[in-house]
């Protein structure tokens, strides 16, 4: 089991200083606070949560796009928390949310994809480079002539394909997909989701799939982690998590999904949470979910619940699991 892990995150903490506060006491945002999980080779691990819960930060910290405040990131058995990342950049890549903002408007698609090939010196000469670019574009369903065009000439779905081709250029093993379909039209989202699945089959990729859309995450992932205010609150196989969730936050998240089925929609009993997500600058003491939790007691304010295994391969952090029904 153990040697199957490709990525492991141990007690990851990622804090950011914020301007403001008093002169001597700088404020910090604990964007990710003590998060641990692992991702197996060839697996898709989904990370869901509301905006500001730290899911994107987690993804970026794994790639060392942020320098982790503390904790360890272990990639393929090696602790990469403090090493030179260049050799690892070839093995781990990212696809960003907004295909409009993440492609340089002044570069042709060929150069965007080719840049990675140049940096890592993956092509011996120009014709080899061109061949590789064409190969990558066809892999994501674009054709040769697209290489000479600029990003503005493409639709959102096509741009996201370019972003994926760019990530694939270095032949990575692991890709962080950071909300890769949120900015796309509904009719295009399924195309891109299917492409991610096909590429995984073809190239044996491992994904960290970050999204706020639980239905999509459930569809594509083997296991899912749910985050709330910088903490993992529940983690389980995707089937288990959607059908037998135990944490009150996951429950409300699932009940809030707007199902595209009128009968089901009429019959769902929604669990409404009180209020809004508290500010991460000043998170509640104890369990961070307690301010919105229908089961919260005094204990929750004092003591932080432990993230423990409630049934095989199913973890959750809550004091009142027995009461949540």
């Amino acid at each position: 089991m153990d040697n199957n892990k490709l990525v492991e995150v141990q007690n990851l903490r990622q804090y950011f200083p914020v301007s403001g506060g008093t002169l001597f006491k700088k404020k910090i945002v604990k964007a990710v606070d003590d998060v641990s999980f692992y991702i197996n080779k060839g697996e898709t691990f989904g990370l869901v949560g509301e905006s500001g819960c730290g899911k994107t930060t987690t993804g970026r910290s794994i790639l060392r796009l942020h320098e982790p405040t503390s904790g360890k990131i272990i990639y393929d058995g090696v602790d990469i928390t403090r090493v030179n990342m260049l050799p690892y950049r070839r093995r781990m890549q990212i696809v960003f949310q907004d295909p409009y903002a993440s492609l340089d408007p002044r570069m042709t698609v060929g150069d965007i994809v080719g840049e990675a090939i140049d940096i890592h010196k993956l092509a011996a000469n120009k014709s080899e480079r061109r061949e590789r670019i064409v190969e990558l574009l066809s892999l994501v369903g674009l054709n040769t002539e697209h290489a000479n065009r600029y990003p503005h000439e493409f639709s959102g779905g096509q741009r996201q394909r370019v972003g994926i081709a760019r990530a694939l250029a270095v032949n990575p093993e692991f890709i962080v997909c950071d909300e890769p379909i949120s900015a796309l039209d509904v009719s295009i989202q399924a195309q891109v989701v299917n492409m991610f699945e096909e590429l995984q089959e073809k190239m044996g990729l491992t994904y960290l799939f970050i999204s706020h859309n639980l239905s999509v995450v459930k569809h594509i992932s083997n296991r899912i982690g749910v985050m709330y205010l910088g903490k993992l609150v529940e983690l389980a196989d995707s089937e288990e998590l959607t059908l037998r969730s135990v944490h009150p936050y996951t429950r409300s998240l699932i009940s809030a999904i707007l199902v595209a089925d009128p009968m089901a929609a009429r019959n769902t009993q929604r669990i409404f949470l009180e209020g809004d997500v508290p500010s991460p600058l000043n998170p509640p003491s104890g369990c961070r979910f307690r301010t919105r939790c229908p089961y919260a007691t005094e204990l929750c304010a004092v003591e932080e619940p432990e993230f423990k295994e409630v049934s095989p391969r199913h973890f959750a952090a809550c004091h009142h699991l027995d009461k949540v029904k």
Binding site: A190, S215, V259, A260
Partner: peptide, 8 residues
């Protein structure tokens, strides 16, 4: 209708 995943 076919292109959206259903959680159930």
């Amino acid at each position: 209708l076919q292109s959206v995943p259903n959680i159930y």
